[in-house]
């Protein structure tokens, strides 16, 4: 085995596996697409087969699915209220998709689709456009009232409106970058530690190995928390868009 090269970011490369083009658009199947399919497929399998028997007193796998459902439902009801259940499918899908995509990266040889800014950016922009459409449909021209907080002297308004608009634009950006940076940083640290473990002599190699085990446990924890944070922030933004007059 040759000397391992120090390329910590090499496993984030998106390589096409099957080149396809449609009307000049490149829709080739890359490893990112493949892993998205794998995570969606495994999420479907898990959700379907764990709740297949539909027992009134749930068995162990069904308890997991029920816990997932209750987690999102309590979050929706607490943040949006009674009519929040209309947005439940979107939030549940977001949570399960982000969770399984994050966890796929921790499987050996796996690739986390959410470590690509384009994947997380698409999810964040989807939620953002959804909240804009919600707000416009709900309040028509009152949409612009969101940028002007109540009870403000008019001279301050001129200062506050650009600030409010900037913070409004910062929401999808921070949503996307938060998830992307967490996944990328975690895997990069794991790659660097693994490199140390590969090149260190045998009497020292237990330290990187031990640390990578502990850090993988931390990564699983962070994957779950980041999925939850993405969902709860989307929930809060939807609630914000539905603001009651």
């Amino acid at each position: 085995m040759g000397e391992p090269r120090f390329e910590p970011l090499s496993h984030f490369e998106v390589r096409p596996i099957l080149e396809l083009t449609l009307f000049g658009m490149d829709i080739s199947i890359s490893n990112s697409v493949l892993w998205i399919w794998l995570s969606v497929f495994s999420a479907l399998l898990f959700l379907l087969f764990a709740s297949r028997r539909g027992l009134f007193i749930p068995d162990r796998m069904q308890v997991l699915v029920e816990m997932l459902y209750l987690l999102i439902r309590d979050m929706v009801e607490k943040n949006i209220g009674k009519e929040g259940m209309a947005y439940f499918p979107l939030l549940f899908t977001l949570f399960v998709f982000v969770l399984f995509c994050n966890l796929m990266g921790l499987v050996p040889g796996g690739f986390a689709p959410t470590s690509q800014i384009i994947v997380t950016g698409s999810l964040a922009v989807t939620v953002f456009i959804f909240t804009i459409i919600l707000r416009v449909v709900r309040h028509k021209w009152g949409f612009f009232r969101a940028f002007a907080p109540e009870g403000l002297p008019p001279v301050l308004l001129l200062l506050m409106i650009p600030v409010e608009i900037i913070s409004f634009i910062a929401r999808p950006i921070s949503l996307a970058v938060r998830l992307f940076a967490n996944m990328t940083a975690g895997h990069t640290v794991l790659a660097v530690i693994a490199f140390f473990g590969l090149v260190s002599p045998w009497f020292v190699a237990w330290a990187p190995l031990g640390f990578s085990i502990i850090f993988t446990a931390m990564e699983i924890f962070i994957a779950i928390i980041q999925a939850y944070i993405f969902t709860i922030l989307s929930c809060v933004y939807i609630d914000d868009a539905l603001a009651y007059e």
């Binding site: 970058v177 938060r178 967490n182 990328t184 940083a185 928390i225 939850y228 944070i229 709860i232």
Partner: peptide
Amino acid sequence: AWIGFALVETIALYALVIAF
């Protein structure tokens, strides 16, 4: 506490993204 932790850790990761 865990929600706050995730949000604060994100700022550290913004710094990492700038380094990249």
